[in-house]
């Protein structure tokens, strides 16, 4: 990750929502395809969906748009991949979760608690001179929160990578380019 705003709207970042059959090795197939073809994964989140036989992988890839089309087509060739949609950030809901250990001695503790309240986060653990906070929200909100916590001293932090779904009014539309390719190999 680079810069202070790693999840910002970098023009080379694209979000793919990949529905896969929940079979052994499916994540390895996806990951090795990216490695083999020289594509960069920026973040990746995987979990089963409402139907146990499928998982959804949300991948943020770091590419120009022409190779993106190749990535999508190559991903489609994996037998376990059922559907791919490119999610437009403006037309999707995105969520990410972070946890962070922040130095919090003396008066700073109250300031941090206030900040957590403003952001509607949570305090998960309290120690003698530090607290562990959590926040879920849009990646941008997490960026802002991180920036504000930085002055107190973040000793450790972890983010999940984003998960996303299309907003309801456009829920059935996948990006046009992806839609016309059909599913074939």
């Amino acid at each position: 990750m680079s810069g202070s705003n790693p999840y910002g709207s970098a023009p080379t970042h694209h979000m793919l929502s990949v529905l896969v059959q929940n079979r052994p090795g499916v994540l390895a197939r996806v990951a090795s395809l990216f490695a083999r073809r020289g594509y960069n994964i920026f973040s990746l989140a995987v979990a089963p969906t409402e139907q146990a036989e499928y998982s959804r992988i949300t991948i943020v890839v770091d590419v120009e748009s022409a190779p993106l089309e190749q990535i999508v087509k190559q991903l489609f060739k994996l037998i376990d991949v059922v559907r791919i949609s490119e999610l437009d950030p403006r037309k999707s809901v995105e969520r990410e979760l972070m946890v962070a250990t922040v130095k919090a001695g003396g008066t700073e503790r109250a300031e941090i608690v206030e900040l957590v309240n403003i952001f509607e986060g949570r305090i998960l653990s309290v120690g003698a001179d530090a607290v562990i906070v959590s926040l879920d929200g849009s990646p941008e909100k997490l960026d802002d929160f991180t920036e504000l916590l930085r002055q107190y001293g973040i000793t450790e932090s972890q983010r999940t990578g984003r998960v996303a779904l299309p907003k309801l009014d456009t829920a059935t539309k996948v990006s046009k380019a992806l839609n016309t390719q059909g599913k074939a190999k």
Binding site: E69, Q70, K73, F76, K77, Q181, G182, A184, K185
Partner: peptide, 18 residues
């Protein structure tokens, strides 16, 4: 080509037919 990934992999087609 029956493989959509071949379309445009090397040269962009004017008329792609999968």
């Amino acid at each position: 080509d029956i493989d959509p990934a071949e379309q445009g992999k090397v040269r962009k087609p004017d008329v792609p037919i999968v």
